[in-house]
């Protein structure tokens, strides 16, 4: 692990030294020009934006599906659904990417225009023009991609709630939903948070699915319906083959940034989980 890190850092340093701009704040990515100019700004923004959106869309659905399987569906249906979820979790991401390009990109044109027209006052839905190949579409593909894994883990967590805690709630006169709020969700929270972090990590690291969809622009735009979007991983996938020496070093540097972001997000999540359980202790 350390050897890999040292090797990558060694590869990245010459490129960073050759850079004619600030790596952390520059938006453009032209490491193969002379002089080379590149920065992580737009790419890091796109990575975080697309993954955060994906997580926000996937979480409620995933937790709902997990609760349905663990506590609502009759046993047979629960078994079948659980199997389908596990199966979906194993689908290679390129399949989701292709589905995104072929089906979702054209399909999203209409709904995006609708959002823009009626909710355009909201910064996320503002902007002109509105296209199908957008940040939103990429985020939806990511959301669908991470949904099964979050749902599968959450379901396992919910199934582990001790029967006696559920019975305690029911015996107090809780309805099924009240029982879930009283006994299942609090017990499952740390596990669901871990599932969310795993999903977020996957979304941030996802390469091929988003590389197919992102228009690969280099800017920071909050409107998610326009022809904008890129991510660190997608940029590496698209740029590595034709990169020169500086270009490769630059891409490696961006990969290290992705690694750091993932690390920071994970540590933050761990701290939140620890603080939550610490507060009640």
């Amino acid at each position: 692990m350390a050897a890999i890190a040292v090797f990558l850092i060694a590869e990245a340093i010459p490129a960073l030294q050759a850079n004619n701009s600030s790596f952390l704040t520059e938006l453009l990515w032209t490491p193969n020009n002379t002089p080379p100019v590149f920065g992580i700004g737009a790419l890091a923004f796109g990575t975080i934006m697309s993954s955060a959106l994906a997580l926000a869309m996937a979480m409620p659905v995933a937790v709902g599906v997990a609760l349905f399987i663990s506590h609502y569906a009759p046993r047979k249906i629960a078994g079948a659904l659980g199997y389908v979820v596990d199966l979906l979790a194993a689908v290679p991401s390129v399949v989701y990417g292709l589905w995104g390009v072929i089906f979702l990109v054209p399909f999203m044109q209409g709904p995006s225009e609708f959002l823009n027209e009626y909710l355009g006052w909201f910064p996320l839905f503002s902007g002109d023009p509105v296209v199908g190949r957008s940040m939103l579409t990429a985020a939806i593909v990511l959301a669908i991609m991470i949904l099964p894994i979050i749902a599968a883990i959450s379901r396992e967590v919910f199934l582990q709630v001790p029967r006696m805690n559920e019975e305690a709630a029911l015996a107090l006169g809780a309805t099924r939903w009240e029982m879930i709020k009283m006994a299942v969700l609090p017990f499952g929270r740390p596990g669901v948070m871990s599932a969310a972090m795993l999903g977020l990590g996957r979304a941030m690291g996802e390469t091929i699915a988003v590389a197919l969809i992102f228009p690969a622009t280099f800017g920071i735009t909050f409107g998610i319906l326009g022809p904008n979007g890129n991510s660190i991983a997608a940029n590496i996938a698209l740029g590595f083959a034709e990169a020169g020496e500086v270009g490769r070093g630059a891409l490696i540097a961006s990969g290290l940034v992705l690694f750091i972001i993932t690390l920071v997000v994970n540590m933050a999540a761990r701290m939140i989980i620890a603080r939550r359980s610490g507060a009640s202790a």
């Binding site: 006696m164 805690n165 019975e167 015996a171 107090l172 009283m182 609090p186 929270r189």
Partner: peptide, 17 residues
Amino acid sequence: RRTIGMVFQRPNPFPTM
């Protein structure tokens, strides 16, 4: 169940509360 309460064999307070 709100009218007829129940105490179980194993003490089962809610562990997160």
